[in-house]
Amino acid sequence: MTSITSVSGSDDNALQSSFRTLDQCNKGECLRLQDLVAQPAFGEHDEEVTLRLKELGFLPGTTMTVLGYGFLGRDPISVKVSGTKFALRRTEASKLVVTTLEAQA
């Protein structure tokens, strides 16, 4: 479903840890956003969704924490990005390519 071919790994950490998309991550994980990729499910709105995600602060380089999941099928996902909490569906989350951050003290 997700292609991560367009990842432009700019961060050094990225080389050590494997790339995943946010929908594959677990509750409590601290992550660094590496890239935003296309998600065909959004059709022609995909670029707008990318733009809106960026405008809300989902920019490559930012760190985020997975707070929890919704009622069914671990969907939606709640995350904290630079102090602000957001609810994302798995579809949006699959646009966000992340790497694991070393556990913070």
Partner: peptide
């Protein structure tokens, strides 16, 4: 309708 999706993208204040 077609299956094209819209994002939820909800800020939790």
């Amino acid at each position: 309708n077609t299956r094209e999706e819209y994002p939820l993208l909800l800020e939790l204040p």
